[in-house]
Amino acid sequence: MAKHNDRKKISYPGLALFLVISAINTATADGTGKVVFEAQCQSCHDLTEKAPETLKQLWERKGPDLSSAGIKYKSAWLNEWLQNPTRIRPAGMFYGNHIKTGKKTDVVDPSGLVNHPRLSSEQASQVVEMLMTLKRNENLVTSGEYRPGSIPMMLGEMMFDKFKGCLACHQIEPGYGGLSGPEMYTAANRLQEDYLISFMRNPQSWEPKSIMPNKNLKETDLQKLVHYLRALSKEKFQ
């Protein structure tokens, strides 16, 4: 009897795996990013979703809003990341769902954190092609607003940390900085510069309940911070 039960238990993951593989094969065979997206991504990323308007909606969200992907992400990074995903937000999508008290301070509770699925090269290309057509909130971004320039690394870090206090929530290298926001040492690899300017200028115009506050940054500071993020993204961290 016990053996029979064990066999039944084993068969369910096997069946689930078969169904997932079938779904992926079907999606790939169809050849469109939309189909791959519906099979692989839609349970966490709802493209029709509006930005959370209540805290409950904010807490329940599983993945970032992709309805603006075409004006937010850099396609080359997105393609690579979907094939080799890493955690960008150390404490998950909403940090409040993944923390617990520790000995000295609160700590990230990794038990509920879910790893992002890995796509094949073909699937990643298909999904990226589809995502880059999505441009909700396009009116918030001014193309070419970021003017490439540079800032000494030390000055950029002082600005990010001492002058503007961004380090409170964001890491500027692995293991250094706040944990509730996304890591910043990859930000300029991931995100389009004009989007960075727009989001930092007014995070609530993108997401009314975002935990990123509006720091009332001056236009020159917005440009300098993006100079810094671009320099930071070129650093090689172990």
Binding site: G96, T101, T105, D161, A168, G177, G178, L179, S180
Partner: peptide
């Protein structure tokens, strides 16, 4: 309580004792 959980706890901690997940590298 909901606003505190969302915006304050990250630095001020689950217990409100100033021991949030972000504090390790704060000056």
């Amino acid at each position: 309580a909901d606003n505190y959980r969302t915006y304050c706890v990250q630095c001020h901690g689950l217990k409100g004792d100033g021991k949030g997940i972000n504090v390790a590298d704060m000056s």
